[in-house]
Design a protein around this nucleic acid. Sequence first.
DNA 1: TATAATAGTGACCAAATGGTCAATTGTCAA
DNA 2: TTGACAATTGACCATTTGGTCACTATTATA
Lengths: 276, 276
Amino acid sequence: MIKKQLIMEKALELFAKQGFEATTVQQITEYCGISKGAFYLSFKSKDELILALIDHHMMQFTSDIDYIVRKTNNENLLYEFYYAAFHSFHQHSDFAKILMKEQTQTFNEELIKKMHYYDRQTEKIILSMIERFYGEEIKQTKYDLMYCIKGFINTYSHLFLFYNVPLNLNLLSESLVEKTNLLARHTKLPFISEELIQVIKQPMTEEDSKEKILENIQKKIEEMEESIEKESLQLLKQQLLEPTLSPAIVKGLIENIQNHPHCKWTSYLLQSYYGF
Amino acid sequence: MIKKQLIMEKALELFAKQGFEATTVQQITEYCGISKGAFYLSFKSKDELILALIDHHMMQFTSDIDYIVRKTNNENLLYEFYYAAFHSFHQHSDFAKILMKEQTQTFNEELIKKMHYYDRQTEKIILSMIERFYGEEIKQTKYDLMYCIKGFINTYSHLFLFYNVPLNLNLLSESLVEKTNLLARHTKLPFISEELIQVIKQPMTEEDSKEKILENIQKKIEEMEESIEKESLQLLKQQLLEPTLSPAIVKGLIENIQNHPHCKWTSYLLQSYYGF
DNA sequence: TATAATAGTGACCAAATGGTCAATTGTCAA
DNA sequence: TTGACAATTGACCATTTGGTCACTATTATA
């Protein structure tokens, strides 16, 4: 299990530097100081490794951003969002680079699906954020605004990911807040209509079904020692199988696991599921 | 020579669908209905093919956009720019897809350099456009604006490149003009300063030296039959070797070759060189 | 028609890659 | 110390890839 982590960390570095396809299993094992066989004890294939990397980091990123957006009050909402997003990209710049590089690549059907899935999650978060922040004001232009925000993050990330520029996160975030406000408050001419969004959404099929959440919870329960968090998870599992608890209690239970470092994604899924 | 074109067209399709690395020479030759040997008669290597593709299309794109920006009066400048850019992307969507996919990939040092080079050209064009259009007004924020425009094009291109959405180019362009105007007229808080741009520009070294332009002109002269355009090229070549003509005449000569389908890039280079 | 020159073919090659597995090494309870 | 079990190794394999070249077909020329 610890070996798995070592491989993931080292491989991440190599993938960021050379790209996924261009990095050989040999290189990875050499860089880890292990044998080829040992690699295949931890991962069934090279593909499984990249998939695991994507999952690990995107779960982290998505739940982090979601948490920030949830907990921040309206006044600093946009700023905190941008700050958190860029901070995360900066801190995990190797992963962010992979994300940029492999974004639209086509080797692996499953990988594409995963990317799409997490992309949708991010869009959902951004959308809920601007709906809360601007309210009715942006009803007609919210999809455009969401796309622009995504575009800003993408474009400006390049600056510090691929050039070694000194990064003033504070200024960057403030600057983008200003731009976002301008677009939100004065745009009259949206391009992305509701129906356009429907067309785009088509390819998304995989929903977070109850079964998938249960599976996730079960896994977490198994790898966790006795604690309040574990008990909360068990109760939440029961609740999913047979609803008996009141929403307040459920929310409290989710709150309980929120801060456990291994349950961020689980709590994100549950919050999405229960619509909190 | 005609074979070369066939290969480029067919390969473009495959690259767009599967990516460069994932497409084998075998697949290309089969798709063209030729033998492997024939492929290597036209291109020294697979790398040379992708390089040729990039050059061909980026020269086209860059000089087209530059021409549009030059010839359009201020009133419709932004609109025409966006329209032309998206129109070009749409018409050569296979190439645009490759551009997106291989954007930040690292296989080939030379390819990266090429991409950077054309990227800088595009930035130059956008910058000159907004400087002309907004004047002093955006002095402090022009680099941010330029990045946002690039970001808009990137972000919104995805919509029609990777999803089959019906495309209303007119609406899209108008919508982006509105956004651009908002950002240009009201942004007070730039992020990208002059010195930041200098840091980024560092890696660009390859300038369009006189020698490179001469080389290009010579090639065009050789593959051209007798015509006004050829004569103009010969005079322009002379002028580069030994300046004797007045600027007005030079400008006229460039004008002459402007419309020849094979001289668009040459005329772009000359205009850049003479600062017209 | 004969000859030369050019274009095109596809079997073949060396190198590299993801993945396997018999053999070796390490661990630890008895 | 032993021996059973698990972890680890790296030589090995099948396959694929970009690229070559001796040979054939076609076209232009005399």
